[in-house]
């Protein structure tokens, strides 16, 4: 069975680009434009079948921002160790620190060279898919 990626991204263009860039035979991407909607979906169904293997979470979202969503996701028992990689157009040091402090597994800046951005995402995906073999395995290791 392929792996599941949950992507929370309000910009439909970025969502399409990321989806096209990383989706393949090894994984499917479920996209949420709205953070709260994504959170509710996670809270509603915490079964192993529904739980994603990797979450790509945009930081700047209307309404609930990425930090708040991550904070709430980490409080759901089943989502304590799911790797969450933050996506953002900003590279402010305090935000990067805050992301890791709240339990992010990685942080990727979107505004870098696009090819570089996609390469990083693919590496992160491969890293987590190789590392996270069991759902309960510790997700604290950081992807670079």
């Amino acid at each position: 069975m392929g792996r599941k990626i949950m992507m929370v991204e309000d910009n439909p263009d970025h969502a399409l680009l990321i989806k096209r860039g990383i989706e393949g035979p090894d994984c499917t991407v479920r996209h949420f434009e709205d953070g709260l909607e994504a959170l509710e979906a996670c809270e509603a169904n915490q079964s192993e079948e529904a739980k994603p293997d990797l979450i790509l979470l945009d930081l700047q979202l209307p309404g609930l921002d990425g930090f708040s969503i991550m904070e709430r996701l980490r409080k759901i028992k089943a989502y304590e160790h799911v790797p969450i990689v933050m996506l953002t157009t900003s590279a402010r040091q305090k935000e990067i620190s805050q992301a890791y402090a709240l339990g992010a597994s990685g942080y990727v800046v979107k505004s870098d060279d696009f090819q570089m951005f996609m390469t990083k995402l693919k590496h992160i995906k491969n890293y987590w898919f190789q590392t996270v073999e069991l759902p309960e395995k510790n997700g604290g290791t950081h992807a670079s």
Binding site: N11, D13, H14, L17, Q60, T89, S90, K110, F114, F117
Partner: peptide, 17 residues
């Protein structure tokens, strides 16, 4: 800067696709 950068990511992304 975020709002200005977002369309650039799209332009770069789609043109390279």
């Amino acid at each position: 800067s975020h709002d200005l950068k977002a369309p650039i990511v799209s332009i770069q992304g789609f043109s390279s696709m």
